[in-house]
Write a protein that binds this DNA or RNA. Structure first.
Length: 197
DNA sequence: CCCTGATTCGC
DNA sequence: GCGAATCAGG
């Protein structure tokens, strides 16, 4: 595989979108994450500007590079290329705010069948819920067959609906869900024992 | 162990 | 230019 124009464009897009190198590699196909990273560097866009994706974001690293380094990086990138596609990316996430309720999590519990470990959607940390609804917007939206050992298996939507999918984001570690969903899946402790019937 | 990006260096 | 190997870190 070679870096055709289209592939480079897709690479740029996905990279600035905040996708990880491995994810981009998968989508491109025929390349490894190393190839992606290498290309990214060669393109001079190692810095993901535009909007730092909150969440799975690596903090700004300041690498002294204790190795032999006598080169100065000339980051002179005009980038004044006329793109046919203006890159419609309304990326301007304002996370600084006290987290305004973007959207109320509707209780879309179909028949009351507690499929997922979805705990009572009313006594969970609101911040965690907000986090969930936020990451679910950029979830992988995988199908059942696409789930792997390390993709978030949190179901979203109504299983009896075409809008049903699994989160699919990278799992926290050995857990079945991504960080955000782990947050709501495992309640620290709550009034659990007071469930009387 | 899983992952992330960064860098090096033979090709 | 390319990317596997390696490095450095979470």
């Amino acid at each position: 595989m070679s870096w055709s124009d289209e592939r480079v464009e897709l690479l740029k897009k996905l990279w600035s979108e905040g996708q990880s190198a491995s994810q981009i590699a998968k989508e491109l196909g025929g390349v490894t994450r190393n190839a992606v990273i290498g290309k990214v560097h060669r393109l001079g866009l190692s810095n993901r500007n535009g909007s730092a994706a909150s969440g799975a974001e690596t903090a700004p690293k300041a690498k002294p590079a204790a190795k032999a380094e006598a080169k100065s990086k000339a980051t002179t990138k005009p980038a004044a290329k006329a793109e046919p596609k203006p890159a419609p990316e309304p990326k301007e996430v304002s996370v600084a705010a006290p987290q305004a309720p973007v959207s109320r999590a509707k209780q879309i519990i179909p028949a009351g069948q507690p499929l997922p470990p979805q705990p009572s959607t009313n006594e969970i940390d609101p911040a965690a819920l907000a986090k969930v609804s936020e990451i679910e917007k950029k979830a992988m939206k995988l199908t059942l067959m696409e789930l792997t050992e390390r993709t978030c298996k949190w179901p979203v939507g109504d299983p009896a609906t075409p809008d049903f999918w699994f989160c699919g984001l990278p799992v926290q570690s050995g857990k079945p869900y991504c960080e955000a969903h782990v947050g709501v899946a495992f309640q620290p402790m709550s009034s659990r024992r007071d469930r009387k019937r």
